[in-house]
Design a protein around this nucleic acid. Structure first.
Lengths: 148, 148
DNA sequence: TGCGGAAGTGGGAAAAATTGGGAAATCCTA
DNA sequence: TAGGATTTCCCAATTTTTCCCACTTCCGCA
């Protein structure tokens, strides 16, 4: 169960130094590869490879001649790449994924249960502002009765 | 199982340098030819030849007196060409397929499970914007309860 | 407060991959 | 049949990628 936020940096070669605590929780000691893919909100998703499999299988099972599903497949499967961390625990993020998420240097790492989200820092703050600005945020249907 | 996105270029002779990782996954070490054909979304599809066969057979089995099938047949079978990669792992894309997909120079390679999609870069980004623009993307029926 | 260890950061060298060009072979036309 | 043009194949240089090593910084502990 992943949670917590960390602000980290990409180096000049596009390498992302995954914080040690996150690293251990993701790879179970370096034995498991990870999968990085794209999310419609313009952030990246990071899964342990075994946890990604069922998601991919589900996406691939959508009927491929139904045009409404294709964009989702193209996003989720089309951007997915299986990666291994280098000797220093860094993740080499491809130029395509960096461009998609608008990531250049400063990045936010957000635990989200079964995966981590990776945001460009600026975009992350904008997204936060949208929720925290305005007196009371709009609750989506089904959340009206939710209490903290 | 193909996945991942790569941005590559056509050279002046219309040759497409297939990225090494993609190449290996497609041709299993250069022994297998590939099939390139057209998709209604104005992109190209790239199959390992053995994987294309059952698809072609299925398309050809559509009743030819049903007018609704004919456009599909014309597109999928009519544009299909079996190709081999040259010594440097490049694919010579015919002028017809290039014209169909609006490909001139910059191209996106998208893994989609059993095949790759090849997009003109601009068209790819437009298609992507349609999903990522606007606050929340519309979920097609059957996908409402999908969670990542 | 100093020491030891671990983690993060940067750089460099070797290997691999992409790109471009050129020569040979083939096809088409006159 | 000869010339020209096009295609195909192959080679080589540059660029990119990958892997590894070393330095610095931060933190914990004594």
């Amino acid at each position: 169960m992943f949670q917590g936020a960390s602000q980290i940096n990409l180096d000049a070669k596009g390498r992302l130094a995954v914080p040690t605590r996150v690293r251990d929780s993701l790879t179970q000691g370096g034995t498991v590869p990870v999968v990085l893919t794209a999310h419609p909100d313009k952030c990246l998703l990071l899964y342990p490879a075994p946890a990604w499999e069922p998601v991919r299988a589900k996406v691939m099972s959508f009927p491929s001649l139904d045009a409404a599903f294709n964009p989702w497949k193209r996003l989720l499967v089309g951007f997915a790449e299986e990666l291994a961390l280098d000797g220093s625990g860094r993740l080499l993020v491809s130029p395509e994924l960096r461009a998609f998420a608008g990531i250049d240097k400063r990045v936010m790492f957000i635990g989200q249960g079964s995966y981590y989200e990776i945001w460009d820092l600026e975009r992350w703050q904008q997204q936060l502002d949208r929720l925290t600005a305005g007196g009371s945020p709009v609750l989506p249907p089904g959340m009206e009765n939710f209490s903290l």
